[in-house]
């Protein structure tokens, strides 16, 4: 996606992103770092609160009509939990909300997550600019689908 194009996509309505930690994971520092970084990049940022179930994450994403759900887990349960969310999106036939992941995710798990449609999967030490660029790219795809259809 060319930079100019994605900028005009979000000129009137910024990227809207939902941060979620859908599991027993009290490592919330990363959430706050990301929330602030996304806001400073001009995005509208939502946080799903403590221990949301996959259903609650999707319900919130739909009600708020976000472009991206950012899933974060540092507790090692990402394969099962992220999959639940991805399956639920498919079950509800939602194809215009992008899933991006992150946390402590071993490299060997990343292809599996990619297959579920969950991209990024960045861990500790990733430059924030890399994360923001990636989110912007996925948000652009989602926003184009929103504009195209329904």
């Amino acid at each position: 996606m060319a930079v100019g194009k994605s900028q005009s996509l979000f000129k009137e309505k910024p990227i809207k992103i939902l941060l979620a930690k859908p599991g027993i994971d009290g490592h919330d520092r990363g959430m706050f770092v990301l929330a602030k970084a996304f806001r400073d990049a001009g995005m509208d940022v939502l946080y799903a609160g403590l221990l949301p179930t996959p259903e609650e994450v999707i319900d919130t994403a739909v009600s708020e009509d976000v472009d991206v759900i950012a899933l974060s887990l540092l507790n090692g349960a990402h394969l099962t939990v992220f999959k639940k969310i991805s399956d639920l999106l498919k079950k509800r036939k939602i194809d215009d909300i992008a899933l991006v992941g992150g946390g402590t995710i071993p490299d060997s798990d990343k292809p599996k997550l990619e297959k579920m449609g969950i991209s990024g999967n960045y861990g500790p030490g990733t430059p924030l600019s890399t994360i923001i660029d990636h989110v912007t790219k996925r948000a652009s795809e989602a926003r184009l689908r929103k504009l195209g259809g329904r």
């Binding site: 910024p14 929330a35 602030k36 996304f38 806001r39 400073d40 990049a41 001009g42 995005m43 509208d44 940022v45 939502l46 946080y47 799903a48 609160g49 949301p52 609650e56 319900d59 919130t60 708020e64």
Partner: peptide, 21 residues
């Protein structure tokens, strides 16, 4: 919204999330 970046932390929702759910 932030007057500097135009971005927004939509924080009201978390306070009522339980009731909403």
């Amino acid at each position: 919204s932030s007057p500097f970046t135009g971005g927004t932390l939509l924080g009201n929702r978390v306070r009522m999330q339980e009731s909403i759910n």
